[in-house]
């Protein structure tokens, strides 16, 4: 049990964190002493925090606050309004979001419609994954001719996908890692390393 810093008698139920001249100070009070000192709710009570089960005692001032680099929404702004500032916020605040989403929806995985280009990319990704599996098998079984064909197919699919460069780059790395060939730039067959 944590005791009140003022009376040292009763259990502390009110916790105050203040930043004074860049230094963090933590104080613990029992309800009586907190009332005497006029500390009602220094954290700025927000109804959404209570409703969304985010917890009022979480100390957001202790460390540098999470802030979205795209829209500059801070974690405390998000906790207060329950609204995200941009699509990038979903990745940044995913930890806080998950319990909220769990309360609202039966599952955390979208199964409905997707933009066409996304569905297309998804399909290509799956084809590439399948070919990569076949490629690994071909290599393991030392069917190098077959492996070379599969590699060409993978590269061709990646060319199609290169309209979205960031995705294509990460795929390039994936393929190269499992590839025991030397990449050739002249379009000839690859040589075994």
């Amino acid at each position: 049990m944590m005791f009140c810093n003022t009376c040292n008698k009763k259990e502390a139920t009110v916790f105050l964190t203040q930043i004074v001249d860049g230094k963090m100070q933590k104080m613990n009070f029992c309800e009586t002493c907190a009332q005497k000192k006029g500390i009602n709710d220094p954290s700025g009570f927000a109804l959404t925090e209570l409703l969304l089960g985010l917890g009022l005692t979480q100390d957001v001032t202790a460390t540098a606050e999470l802030t979205c680099s795209v829209c500059e929404l801070t974690q405390s702004q998000f906790k207060k309004t329950g609204r995200l500032g941009c699509s990038a916020c979903y990745d940044l605040f995913i930890e806080e979001l998950m319990p909220m989403l769990r309360n609202m929806h039966p599952s955390l995985v979208h199964v409905g419609k997707a933009p066409r280009h996304f569905a297309q990319e998804q399909k290509e990704k799956e084809s590439i994954q399948l070919l990569q599996k076949q490629l690994q098998k071909a290599i393991a079984e030392e069917h190098y001719e077959n492996a070379a064909e599969l590699r060409d197919k993978i590269l061709a699919l990646q060319d199609v996908a290169s309209t979205t460069p960031s995705v294509a780059h990460s795929r390039d790395r994936e393929v190269q890692n499992i590839f025991p060939f030397e990449a050739t730039t002249d379009g000839n067959d690859a040589k075994l390393i």
């Binding site: 329950g82 995200l84 941009c86 979903y90 929806h105 979208h110």
Partner: peptide, 22 residues
């Protein structure tokens, strides 16, 4: 270019609409 997340679906300002947004 609509904001779409591979697992969460269409992303919305309020998490009550995320997924289908419908």
């Amino acid at each position: 270019d609509f904001a779409f997340h591979p697992t969460l679906g269409y992303l919305t300002a309020c998490p009550t609409n995320v997924g289908t947004g419908m």
